[in-house]
Computed example of a mutant assay.
Amino acid sequence: MQSLDILEQLIAFPSVVGQDNGAIVDFISDYLQSHGAKVSILPGPEGDRANLFATLGPADVPGYILSGHMDVVPAGESDWTSSPFQLRRDGELLYGRGTSDMKGFLAAVLAAVPTIAAMRLTRPIHIAFSYDEEAGCRGVPHMIARLPELCAAPLGAIIGEPSEMRAIRAHKGKAAARLTITGRTGHSSRPDLGLNAIHAMAGMLSAAVDAAAGLQAGPLEEVFEPPYSSLQAGTLRGGQAVNIVPDFCEAEFEARAISGVDPASLLEPVRLAAEALAAKGFGVDWAPMSAYPALSLPEQAPLSALLADLTGIEPLAAVSYGTEAGLYQRAGIDAIICGPGHIGCAHKANEYILTSELAACQGMIEALAHHCL
Rank of each mutant, 00 (worst) to 15 (best):
L56T: 02
I41A: 07
R88K: 15
R88D: 06
N51K: 03
V73E: 00
A59N: 04
W80S: 07
G47Q: 03
N51C: 01
S82N: 10
I41H: 03
Q86N: 03
P45V: 03
P62C: 09
A50N: 00
A37W: 10
R88F: 15
A54C: 04
D60A: 15
P74H: 07
F85Y: 11
T81A: 14
A59F: 09
S67H: 09
H69I: 11
A75G: 07
T81R: 15
D79M: 15
E77V: 08
M70L: 13
R88W: 12
D79P: 07
S78P: 02
H69R: 12
V39I: 04
P84R: 10
Y64S: 10
Y64F: 15
G57E: 02
G63R: 12
H35I: 15
G47C: 03
I41T: 09
M70F: 01
M70E: 00
E46Q: 11
L66Y: 06
P45L: 01
G76N: 15
N51W: 05
I41W: 02
A50T: 01
S67C: 13
Y64P: 03
A54H: 03
S82K: 14
E46L: 12
S78G: 08
L42I: 08
V61N: 10
E46N: 06
G47Y: 01
H35E: 11
V73S: 02
G47V: 07
D71R: 14
L52H: 00
A37R: 11
A37D: 05
Q33T: 11
V61K: 12
D60G: 06
I41S: 03
H69V: 09
P43M: 08
A59L: 05
D60S: 13
V39H: 05
T81N: 13
P43F: 06
L52Q: 01
D48V: 04
P84N: 10
G63S: 10
N51H: 01
T81Y: 07
P45G: 01
S83C: 11
L42T: 01
S34R: 15
T55R: 06
S82M: 15
K38T: 14
G44D: 02
G76L: 14
T55K: 04
V73P: 00
I65R: 10
P58M: 09
E77A: 15
F85V: 05
V72D: 03
A59W: 04
F85M: 04
H69M: 13
R49E: 03
Q86E: 10
D48A: 02
N51Y: 06
Y64V: 08
G47M: 03
L42W: 04
D48R: 05
G76E: 14
V61G: 10
P43K: 08
G76Y: 13
